[in-house]
């Protein structure tokens, strides 16, 4: 019984996260401005990380947790670098 509850709720949560990534992906594709795309990419990062945590619950291994931590770190550095570029890039123009 508990296996059924857990499997169904994992499917629902993963489906919702996948739908969320899809919606954010549309926003990243549409723009309209560069900061919208950066914001959308950052949100995709957070959602992918959450998806990895749910996958870790499904499989019960440590592997996905470490992947999630790496995604979080790399995503943070990426967003900061892109934001800095948006600020600095136009100063020179």
């Amino acid at each position: 019984m508990s296996a059924v509850i857990l499997t169904v709720s994992l499917y629902i949560a993963e489906g919702m996260l996948a739908a969320a990534i899809f919606c954010v992906g549309i926003r990243a594709w549409r723009g309209p401005r560069a900061q919208d795309r950066v914001l959308a990419l950052d949100t995709i990062n957070v959602n992918v990380m959450l998806l990895f945590v749910t996958l870790g619950i499904r499989t019960g291994t440590v592997f996905f947790f470490e992947a999630a931590l790496v995604i979080a770190v790399v995503g943070f550095v990426t967003t900061v670098a892109l934001a800095k570029f948006l600020m600095r890039g136009e100063v020179i123009e």
């Binding site: 739908a19 954010v24 959308a40």
Partner: peptide, 9 residues
């Protein structure tokens, strides 16, 4: 997460 994504859209 889904509500946040819908909001972003």
């Amino acid at each position: 997460a889904l509500i946040g994504a819908i909001g972003l859209l």
